[in-house]
Design a binder for these strands. Sequence first.
DNA 1: TACGGGATCCACT
DNA 2: GTGGATCCCGTAT
Length: 206
Amino acid sequence: MKLSRQFYSRDAREVSIDLLGKILVHDINGIKLKGRIVETEAYIADLDKASHAYGGRRTARTEALYGKPGISYVFSIYGLYYCFNVITKEEESAEGVLVRALEPVDGLDEIARLRFKTSYDKLTKLQVKNLTSGPSKLCMALNITKENNMEDLCGDKLYIEHDKNEDPNNKFEIVHTKRIGIDYAEEAKDFLWRYYIKDNPYVSKK
DNA sequence: TACGGGATCCACT
DNA sequence: GTGGATCCCGTAT
């Protein structure tokens, strides 16, 4: 079952936590690439010097952050990579969740090809671990690019769904810790706004 | 119009 | 653990 607009219409920190264990799906001409979300980070412009929209900064790039909950914000970084966020809370609020790592679930051969140009069964152990264990790795793996910026995740192409195999009696443990790669953000760099599933091998950094 | 740097990854040491 | 890749965007001139 697909996550509803309502799911996204909450504080980015709550959404970050509840996204753990959910399945990100990119439908590429009928081939479904799927990964279980195992690591997220919250960004809340009003409180957060690490946010691209801090201080009400509003440009062509950050426009998605101000959009309605449940749309994507994909930005490019270091000239060659992309990062994927989901927008939360409400229009004009500039809150979002960076999806930092996935555990590959479906479309494994296609994912392996997109990352390493080979089939899944030919991957080394290290390559398997590196398939989706980082924010830009997962974009390469699921073929998420700037073309997917401001995509409505309540649509049929790029969306997030509940994991039907999740066992409600055996809930995973969630670690709350500091975010990555934002040392410039002064006090905000110490906010415990990164969340991950304890002991999952695809988490980008312990 | 120019310049500097980034919510990263990878190869190499 | 370190540095290079590589380009788009934000900010200043």
